[in-house]
Computed example of a mutant assay.
Amino acid sequence: MVKENLKEVEEKITAACERAGRDRNEVTLIAVSKTKPMEMIEEAYSAGKRDFGENKAQEMKEKHDALPDDIKWHFIGHLQTNKVKYVVGRATLIHSVDSLHLAEAIEKESEKKNLVSDILIEVNVACEESKFGLKTDEVEKLVRDVAKLPHLRVKGLMTIAPFVENAEENRNIFRELKALSVDIAAKNIDNISMDILSMGMTGDYEVAVEEGATLVRVGTGIFGERNYSI
Rank of each mutant, 00 (worst) to 15 (best):
M1R: 13
M1C: 07
E8P: 01
V9R: 02
K12F: 03
R19C: 03
G21L: 01
G21W: 02
G21N: 02
R22P: 00
R22K: 15
I30H: 05
V32P: 05
K34I: 09
T35W: 10
E39W: 08
M40C: 01
M40S: 01
I41W: 13
I41S: 05
I41N: 11
Y45Q: 10
A47H: 12
G48L: 13
R50C: 13
D51H: 15
G53V: 06
K56C: 07
A57K: 07
Q58V: 08
Q58T: 10
M60V: 11
E62A: 15
D65C: 05
A66R: 12
L67H: 09
L67D: 11
L67Y: 10
P68W: 10
D69T: 12
D70P: 01
H74E: 09
F75D: 13
H78G: 13
L79V: 14
L79Y: 13
Q80I: 15
N82A: 00
V84N: 10
V84F: 15
G89E: 09
I94Y: 04
H95L: 08
H95Y: 04
H95G: 05
S96F: 12
S96M: 11
V97D: 03
A105R: 11
E107F: 08
E107V: 04
K108G: 01
K108F: 03
E111A: 15
E111S: 14
N114M: 09
L115P: 02
V116W: 04
D118T: 09
D118P: 09
I119C: 07
I119S: 08
I121W: 10
V123S: 01
V123Q: 07
C127K: 14
E128R: 03
E128K: 02
E128Y: 05
E129M: 11
E129W: 00
K131M: 04
K135N: 04
T136N: 00
T136K: 10
T136Y: 03
D137Y: 04
V139I: 00
V139Q: 00
V143F: 06
D145Q: 14
K148C: 05
K148Y: 00
R153D: 06
R153S: 09
T159P: 07
A161V: 08
P162I: 14
P162E: 08
F163D: 15
E165K: 15
E168S: 08
E168R: 14
E169G: 09
I173G: 00
I173W: 10
R175S: 15
K178M: 07
K178F: 14
V182R: 12
D183T: 12
I184P: 00
A185H: 01
A186Y: 04
N188H: 10
N188P: 02
I189S: 02
I189D: 04
D190H: 08
I192L: 03
S193E: 11
S193V: 05
I196P: 01
L197A: 05
L197N: 03
M201A: 03
T202Y: 01
D204M: 03
Y205P: 07
V207N: 10
V209P: 11
V209C: 02
A213L: 02
A213D: 00
V216W: 14
V216R: 10
R217T: 02
R217E: 09
G219S: 10
I222A: 06
I222V: 15
G224W: 12
N227V: 08
Y228G: 06
I230S: 12
